[in-house]
Structures are given as structure tokens and as C-alpha cells.
Amino acid sequence: MNIFRLTGDLSHLAAIIILLLKIWKTRSCAGISGKSQILFAIVFTTRYLDLLSSFISLYNTSMKVIYIGCAYATVYLIYMKFRATYDGNHDSFRVEFLVVPVGGLAVLINHDFSFLEILWTFSIYLESVAILPQLFMISKTGEAETITTHYLFCLGLYRALYIVNWIWRYYFEAFFDLIAIVAGVVQTILYCDFFYLYVTKVLKGKKLSLPA
């Protein structure tokens, strides 16, 4: 474990908690893409199946349980409890265009052709594009609530910090996982235009609104 991975995990945890609290406190999931949240629930489920089979550390296991729990709680709040506030018309990204190619790629390019490893690879590839429905929804509505932009910033920052963690592990632990690195770079690149808007608008106290 290194400081970059730890702050990355904490940034990821913060994002998940921010979103959950935003929906719970405002009793509304306006502006939130339920499709992205379903994809994240799938990402955690397929990646953490080893919860039952391999124990790495208390930290590792507890974080996995928290991530999975919060992901399903968020999906529940969006599609069940506060479904009246779910903006289905703007959450119209065709996720099958993500899941199918990612599934195919996971079967073709992986470290080991075993069930758990293909699911882990699927999860890594899916996570890199899971935010697209959310970014697409913001481009369609032309704006995002400030709390949602903080959620997205923490979520984008987490994988950017993981990239630094991989650089660190390459030099100090000779650890190198090309699949995770390539997917992580793609994932972080997808946030670049959001990061630009976040820094130039939200951090200056303006509302994030796209030229519609």
C-alpha cells in the first residue's frame, strides 16, 4: 500500500458517500444517471467475487463490502425509493454499446482464461467507461448540480491517483498490470473535459453549465 493508492481509495469512497448522501438528503436523484450507477454496481460485483475466496487484508475486505453495499443502496434509491425523481428521459445512453464490446474484449484480452480472472478483466474494462452515461446525461441537460460535480471530481481523481500508484509500484515493487493501467488511463482521459470545466467554473463558484 502507498499514499497514492490510499488517497485514491479514500477519494473513491468519498465520491460514493457524497452521491449516496446527496440522494438521501435531498430525497432526489435529479441529474444522476441511474445507468451509470447500475454499471458501477456490476463493476463491484464482478470484481469482488473473490471476497469469499481470498482474504488480502481487513482494509481490502471492508472497503469491498462498503463499495458493494453503497453501490446497491444507490441503485435502490434511484430506481425504487426516489424513482419519481429519476430523470429517465435524459438518462438515455445505450449501455449495451458499452457492456457487449467490453464483455467481448474481456474474453479476448486477459491475464488468465479463468472464470474469476475474466470477470475481473470485464470489471476493469467496464469501470473505465461506466461514467459515460452520466457525462452524456450532463451534456444533454446542459448542467449539473454542484454536489454532483464534486462527486464526479472525486470519482475522476481516484483513478488518476491510481495511475500515480502504478508508477510508484512499477519503480518500487516491480509491479506492473498493463490491463489495469491502460483501462485506468482511458478512464481518466474521459474525465479531462469535466476536470477542465470543474476547475474553471465550479472552483470559481459558478454553476457547471455547458453551452447547450
Partner: peptide, 10 residues
Amino acid sequence: EYNIFGHDEL
């Protein structure tokens, strides 16, 4: 790289 104990990152 992939080790027999699976992946140690979240």
C-alpha cells in the same frame, strides 16, 4: 502482474 492470490488492489 497477476499473482496466484488474485489482485490486491480495489
